[in-house]
Nucleic acid binder design. Sequence first.
DNA 1: TAGGCCATCTGGTCCT
DNA 2: AGGACCAGATGGCCTA
Length: 131
Amino acid sequence: MCTEETWDKGIFTPYQNGAGVVSAVKQRCQANARERDRTQNSVNTAFNTLRLLIPTEPPDRKLSKIEILRLAGSYITHLDNQLFTGDVDQPCLQKNDGDNKNNSLCTFCWSSLKKEKNAPPPDKNYYKMTY
DNA sequence: TAGGCCATCTGGTCCT
DNA sequence: AGGACCAGATGGCCTA
């Protein structure tokens, strides 16, 4: 990998067709390093911070980045519902997709319900339908 | 083994 | 000119 370290130690040795080319490659290496840092420190930290705000079951469930974004949206909608009704004790019901016409408890409501009543976890399909 | 996810590289664009 | 940001490409890893 082309990094400041590998460059400085001579580990990363690109084609050397003159000082200008070498300089350009080093600039590219530095740009790559900046982009890595930005992705790791800025973007990933933001995803991790956002992840901590989303209740899931189990709480330490691994979420992909796209899941974090989708669930964050769902959670905002959920909170908006509660704000609109003005009753945080009133669980919001969601209509399942597909052929199943039964209403089910919103996962976020279930998560808070579980804390109070120690309810058993819903199955995998439940998450699929309501997240 | 195919598909999903992720890190990394890269070139383009915009801003200071 | 140099850096930040972004989107597309690519290759590796993991899981069903």
